[in-house]
């Protein structure tokens, strides 16, 4: 069966909906994401857009719906427009970000307290969690940090993409996402057990164990290299933990 490329829906059959970008009304196709709608309306992105894939956190958007007191948020590149929504993008939020020499830290709660004492101004209003486009339980990781649980904070904040919306809503003026980033760094570097096999591997590399193999590859002409690559022994998808290749000379 051949794959037929999907027809682009033509403008005539696309349903158009009104949206308000920074107060100005535009008619845009109902199927577009906010980001595409903004471009459709004629804006050109020079900021507030990065990966277009929902991971870089550059495109945080705040919007409201008519007759609803709630503040809604979303990533412009991921959120589909809704009729009558009125929105603005927030490409940057000026939140306190302290400088530190990471090598001098050791992973104790006091270090976070010292770098971000405003942590203790949290009042648990939960505005941060409500506004997070990634559904991170922001208030909970701040609560964890207040009691010195860096590991819990690192885990709870794992999906954070540093968009800064939490800080924009915080009545305690905390830069939650920067504090969480420090927590994840400390957790990764000092609190999670070291991967031993990685250290063995690095030592092997340093000791020159793979130099001959590498030299062999480098010495091949393109044809031999291609053939070697294509005929390489591959780990079958169903392989268990204890699988090893037939040719063990390169291990």
């Amino acid at each position: 069966m051949s794959i037929v490329p999907q027809e682009e829906t033509t403008a005539t059959e696309t349903k158009m909906v009104p949206i308000y970008i920074m107060g100005k009304r535009y008619e845009v196709p109902a199927t577009l994401t906010i980001m595409k709608a903004i471009e459709y309306a004629g804006y050109k992105y020079i900021r507030g857009c990065g990966c277009r894939g929902g991971v870089c956190g550059a495109c945080s958007t705040v919007y409201r719906k008519p007759g609803d007191y709630k503040i809604y948020t979303g990533l412009a590149c991921q959120t589909v427009v809704e009729p009558e929504m009125y929105l603005t993008q927030m490409p940057f939020y000026p939140a306190n970000r302290t400088t530190y020499d990471f090598g001098e830290l050791t992973g104790t709660p006091d270090e976070i307290n010292r770098l971000y004492p405003e942590l203790f101004r949290c009042v648990a209003c939960n505005a941060c969690t409500k506004v997070c486009p990634m559904d991170v339980q922001v208030m909970d990781y701040i609560a964890a940090l207040k009691r010195g649980d860096i590991q819990a904070a690192a885990e709870i904040s794992f999906d954070c993409i540093q968009c800064g919306l939490c800080a924009s809503r915080c009545m305690g003026e905390l830069p939650q996402y920067h504090i969480a980033q420090l927590a994840r760094r400390l957790n990764g570097a000092y609190l999670t057990p070291k991967a031993e096999h990685l250290q063995t591997m690095c030592a092997n590399i340093d000791a020159g164990r793979y130099d001959p193999g590498l030299a062999e590859l480098k010495g091949m002409d393109l044809e031999t290299l291609r053939n070697t690559y294509q005929s390489r022994e591959m780990e079958p998808a169903s392989a268990g933990e204890d699988w090893t290749p037939q040719d063990k000379s390169h291990l």
């Binding site: 006091d110 307290n113 010292r114 405003e118 203790f120 101004r121 207040k146 009691r147 010195g148």
Partner: peptide, 16 residues
């Protein structure tokens, strides 16, 4: 910084 390192959380929360 020394004070923050020494002080219990309850001092900072209540003081702030």
């Amino acid at each position: 910084p020394e004070d923050v390192t020494e002080m219990p959380q309850v001092a900072m929360v209540s003081g702030f």
